[in-house]
């Protein structure tokens, strides 16, 4: 039995300690946003945020995550109430087949949480581990810039108390 904190909620999972987080999310918890792509930590489709960092859930066994904060795409907003990152991807129509998009959004979110002023260069470098075979890279970049513009004033408001 492992206890995980998923999107702010404490969840006990039955899976054996060596089970990758991705399998637990999808099979046991029914959180299907993170995708199985390569199973090798090489494509980025399974990316979630752990303690503020983007990690590959397909190569991360749950046992090393005991008590740590995991955020999945479901934690950024829902179908009925999408978050700013999701709204930006919808606005830019950044998904074609969409398989890579959840991972892209999670890493972009982790980057913008850390650096709301991330440059285009920084965004490109950060997303380097993510593969998209449809070729919507330019739209993905536009969506992340849009999300950054959307999120920045709020982040700054919160920071300065204005």
């Amino acid at each position: 039995m492992t206890t995980l904190i998923i999107n702010g909620e404490s969840r006990s999972v039955e899976a054996s300690p060596d089970t990758p987080l991705l399998y637990v999310l999808r099979d046991e918890l029914g959180l299907n946003a993170a995708k199985y792509g390569c199973g090798l930590g090489q494509c980025g489709a399974c990316t979630v945020i752990v303690d503020g960092k983007a990690v590959f859930s397909c190569v991360t066994p749950v046992t090393v995550l005991e008590g740590r904060a995991v955020t999945t795409l479901e934690g950024l907003g829902s179908h009925d109430a999408p978050g700013p990152m999701q709204l930006a991807f919808i606005a830019e129509q950044a998904a074609q087949c969409g398989y890579c998009i959840p991972g892209m959004m999670m890493r972009a979110q982790a980057l913008l949480n850390r650096d709301p002023h991330a440059t285009d260069e920084a965004i490109r470098a950060e997303l380097q581990p993510h593969l998209c075979r449809c070729g919507t890279h330019m739209r993905i970049l536009r969506a992340i810039r849009r999300a950054a513009d959307e999120m920045r004033p709020k982040a700054e408001e919160a920071g300065t108390g204005r």
């Binding site: 930590g41 752990v50 960092k53 983007a54 590959f56 991360t60």
Partner: peptide
């Protein structure tokens, strides 16, 4: 880890520094 090196067939490995 060992990042993929272009189109070469060198071994790869994901990094675990954030995990």
């Amino acid at each position: 880890g060992i990042p993929a090196a272009g189109a070469s067939a060198r071994p790869i490995m994901p990094g675990f520094g954030d995990v």
